[in-house]
Computed example of a mutant assay.
Amino acid sequence: MQFAYDTRVALATGSALVNTVQPEGDLLADRAGLDRFLVDHPYTGRIDGDGAELRAVRDVRDRLRALWDADARDDVVVLVNALLADSGARPFLARHDEWDWHLHLSDPEAPLADRIAAESAMAFVDLIRADDLDRLQRCAAPDCDDVLVDLSRNRSKRYCDTGNCGNRQHVAAYRARRAR
């Protein structure tokens, strides 16, 4: 299935947010970490820049991780509906910057965490409606627990985008073949 551009961006941003928890530490341990995240995954609208906002974004991150941990489609639906309700999502079309008409789900002055939650939840709505939740995966590298969304046409994505997992696994396989 082909997903709209804003859906793909929201899914990528949601997985990137979940992946800010790393074995070496929390990439959102402080406000500077959230600022770095927002450089790579920008949001228009209100940014408070305070500790309350950081805590709220980390709470959304935990709720998004639960989507990958859910055992059944119905469980994901419950989590997504809660995210939509709690975020106060109110969809409308917008056009700004380099983006053509696309869906915004919260007022630009809504708290950042609410906007992240609403956009992520709505992207998951598309996966649920298409019965494509199998696109939600964990990185196949044995030493990585990061999440990913496989939006490739042939559903062949196996490794996360946060590190060099795919590259490391391919090099290891090459070396193993050469050693034989």
Rank of each mutant, 00 (worst) to 15 (best):
D131P: 02
N164H: 14
D35L: 08
R65I: 02
L67H: 07
A113M: 00
R168K: 10
V60K: 14
S87M: 04
S87G: 11
R8H: 02
R175F: 02
E109D: 14
S106G: 03
H96R: 09
G14H: 04
A118P: 01
A110T: 07
Q137N: 06
D150A: 12
D107W: 04
A32H: 07
V21F: 08
L133Y: 07
D134V: 12
L127I: 01
E119W: 03
N19A: 01
P111E: 13
D30L: 12
G45Q: 03
D62R: 15
R178S: 08
A85K: 07
F3M: 12
G88W: 05
L151F: 07
Q169S: 13
N81Q: 10
R36T: 11
V149S: 12
R129S: 10
P23V: 03
A123G: 01
L11E: 10
R90S: 13
G33C: 09
D146R: 09
S15N: 03
R36W: 02
R95E: 04
D126T: 10
P111N: 14
L17G: 08
L112S: 10
T13Y: 06
V9G: 06
V149W: 02
H102K: 10
P42N: 03
D161S: 15
V147S: 12
P23E: 09
H102F: 11
R55M: 07
D62W: 06
A173D: 01
A123S: 01
V57K: 11
G51E: 13
L112W: 06
A176Q: 15
D134Y: 12
V18L: 09
R58L: 08
V147E: 09
L103A: 08
K157V: 14
D100P: 04
L112Y: 08
L133S: 10
D97V: 01
G88A: 09
D62S: 15
R180T: 11
A52D: 15
P91E: 00
V77R: 14
L34S: 11
Y43D: 02
F124A: 11
N164G: 09
Y174A: 13
V18I: 14
D145S: 15
V171W: 02
D132L: 07
H96M: 07
N167R: 15
V149D: 11
D132W: 02
R180C: 04
F37W: 14
S106Q: 09
A94P: 00
S120Q: 04
L112F: 04
R8P: 00
R155H: 11
V60D: 12
N19R: 01
P111H: 15
Q2H: 13
D69C: 05
A82V: 08
R168C: 00
D161Q: 15
G33L: 09
Y43W: 09
D86P: 01
A4N: 07
A12L: 05
P91C: 02
P111D: 15
F92C: 02
R61E: 04
D114W: 03
D35C: 08
L54I: 08
N81R: 05
N167Y: 05
V125I: 13
R158S: 07
D69I: 01
C160A: 10
A29V: 06
L84I: 11
T44A: 10
L112H: 12
R31M: 05
S152H: 08
A32Q: 14
V149Q: 08
